[in-house]
């Protein structure tokens, strides 16, 4: 499956942003489809967006005067976290794909191994900018700002502000200091993505942070067959998320991209989908097979 990852990413991005003609019209899709969230980080103010962004929706609910926590979105994310975990980052997230494409620009590439402590930053972003500030830093009528969307999210600028301001003169006139700030963030993320592999996913993305917490209990797992493994270390070297799959197959940083599977000379690493740890190898392969069929529809 990991061989078709690029195609799956492209397909997921297209499905997440189905209403392409809106780019020219400079409007938004306003149908009921937007009640439901998409799995990846995809701004719902993107003209083409077919669903809501889970992080944006969470802040919208939490920031409204009626609620200070969103069971709807949290439940949805737990469900996705258990069903797929960070497989979503590797296969379904449009912004992850965007960063990967940028990384294909041929330049000198830098390793992020030494920057490991930065990976904890995303949990702080999730807790502070998504959960706490929008819920508790409220104005006189009980409304909070969507802090992550407003001050940090580069996807909103890429998919929302830029195409809308190009198509709509009123919005162009509204561009202010906030746009300058967020545009600089987007440019930094773009520049960093060329040099590093998925810097935003590793260090800042609150959605990735949430799914990361569920990687260990996710039904979608990495499986290493100790009998086949020759400890050559090729998988760890191939991993662009700095994970050693032989030691921690379900590490929080693993986005299930499958590069280790392709790097393994003895086919000791594989995807596994199912409950529990799946000691039985034959059974595991079987469940994976059926899952593959389901997924690729």
């Amino acid at each position: 499956m990991s061989r078709f990852r690029g195609w799956i990413q492209a397909g997921a991005t297209l499905l997440t942003n189905l209403h392409l003609p809106n780019f020219l019209k400079g409007g938004l899709y306003q149908g009921t489809g937007k009640t439901v969230c998409v799995p990846g980080l995809n701004c719902y103010s993107c003209p083409a967006a077919s669903g809501a962004c889970p992080i944006g929706a969470f802040q919208a609910v939490v920031g409204s005067s009626k609620f200070s926590f969103s069971y709807y979105i949290t439940g949805f994310l737990i469900l996705l976290g258990v069903l797929l975990g960070r497989f979503i980052c590797g296969f379904l997230c449009p912004f992850g794909w965007f960063q990967e494409l940028l990384h294909k620009i041929p330049t000198k590439k830098l390793s992020t191994k030494r920057l490991k402590p930065l990976t904890y930053l995303k949990y702080a972003v999730l807790l502070v900018m998504v959960f706490l500030l929008p819920a508790f830093l409220v104005n006189d009528v009980g409304m909070g700002d969507p802090f992550f969307c407003k001050y940090l999210c580069p996807q909103g600028v890429l998919e929302g502000a830029i195409p809308l301001s190009l198509a709509n003169s009123g919005i162009r006139a509204a561009l202010g200091k906030l746009f300058t700030w967020k545009f600089s963030i987007l440019l930094s993320v773009i520049a960093l993505s060329v040099l590093f592999y998925r810097p935003f996913c590793k260090w800042l993305c609150p959605l990735g942070a949430f799914y990361a917490l569920f990687n260990r209990v996710s039904l979608f797992q990495m499986k290493v067959d100790k009998n086949k493994c020759v400890s050559c270390g090729k998988c760890a070297r191939a991993c662009k998320m700095d994970v050693d799959v032989t030691k921690t197959p379900n590490h929080t940083e693993c986005i299930r991209c499958g590069m280790c599977i392709r790097a393994c000379p003895t086919k000791a690493v594989c995807f596994r989908y199912g409950f529990g740890d799946g000691k039985d190898k034959a059974k595991a392969a079987e469940t994976l097979q059926t899952n593959n069929n389901n997924r690729e529809e």
């Binding site: 991005t13 965007f98 301001s165």
Partner: peptide, 27 residues
Amino acid sequence: MKMNRTNTAGRILALLLTALMVLSLAA
């Protein structure tokens, strides 16, 4: 939306995206 594996196609798209960014800046 139809690239991967073939590295060049990916690169071209990446370049296109970059060009778009520059254009939007200019606008």
